[in-house]
Design a protein around this nucleic acid. Structure first.
Lengths: 182, 182
DNA sequence: GTCTATACCTGGATAGAC
DNA sequence: GTCTATCCAGGTATAGAC
């Protein structure tokens, strides 16, 4: 994969996760990268091609982490997962699911499908993690694993949004709550 | 306030909460309401005027509820607050903070400010509610009130987003988790 | 792989008649 | 308060030269 291609993807992802998919244009890419719009279109003919590839590579990154973490304890895997959000927060970035999901109905179909699949994958991963933690008595909570999983992924997602809106460290609070609750 | 004005606000709010602020246009308003773009501009000269008023009236609605609920028990106030999200979910709508917050940096300044103030107000309300519930021994949880408050408002916000993306009843899970955790 | 040039559309917004 | 008409900026996208 060429350097330019990656630079375009990186910049576009950043734009999506600060301004949203519908608020950035090819100019916002070509300007900073000092190329012309047509060059961006060469790499990604349609805007939705760009959007789709950003989702797909995010999904792949997550899958790689999974493999890497597969023999870690549930607690450590949970810590690592939360650390991903902590990094986003320090970069002042919303996560991709939050950035795209809130305007789901405005997205091209290929992006909707990719986004849904990735999100389901993360959710199932979290459920399995929690089940295993319960079984190994590393965790202790009253909710059903799917309920707890949904609470965790939902609260992490929004913590990044609310951080920007409220300008308080919501992520930190949410992290503390989650860790005290498992 | 004229009927047309309200019709415009209602429709625009719906569009924001399904497609996002940047994905709808004056045509999306004027078409369904069978008027012309210029008529919409008469009521709301700039798009951001429309956006701002939608935030402001949402904030006022919340303040009215507060007064109405002020002598209810903490548990009942929490139940009522959750019920607001339940209604949104049944209408397939993301909440306003989620819809706008995820693309915060693309918003006009007047909308950013109004959105931030409203969100802070909701957060503080939730913190007070939880503190009171602890003091009255209606609630029992290990986290600090601000940590718990952030967990609750964050998870409710995203539950509506994830509901759409994952197409499972994430809201229901989150609701169960919250109620078991206080 | 990047450029220039351009096509075509949609967007927000305003002036002025009714 | 709503209309027609119009403006202009910006958006996505493509053709064809280099």
């Amino acid at each position: 994969m060429s350097d330019k291609r990656i630079e375009i993807l990186d910049l576009a992802e950043n734009l999506i996760r600060t301004k949203g998919y519908n608020a950035f244009s090819y100019r916002d890419i070509s300007g900073p990268l000092q190329i012309k719009n047509a060059a961006v279109h060469y790499h990604f003919p349609k805007k939705s091609d760009l959007g789709e590839e950003i989702i797909q590579r995010t999904r792949k990154k997550f899958q790689l982490k999974n493999k890497e973490w597969s023999h870690y304890s549930p607690q450590r895997r949970l810590d690592n997962f939360i650390a991903l959000y902590e990094e986003n927060q320090s970069l002042n970035l919303v996560c991709l699911v939050g950035a795209l999901g809130s305007s789901y109905e405005s997205l091209p179909e290929n992006m909707q499908n990719n986004l849904s699949e990735m999100s389901r994958e993360i959710r199932i991963w979290m459920m399995e993690l929690l089940k295993e933690g319960l079984a190994k008595k590393e965790f202790n909570f009253a909710e059903k694993p799917n309920e707890k999983a949904d609470l965790i992924i939902a609260s992490l997602l929004s913590s990044l949004i609310l951080d920007k809106v409220i300008r308080e460290n919501i992520f930190k609070s949410v992290k503390a709550s989650i860790l005290k609750g498992v």
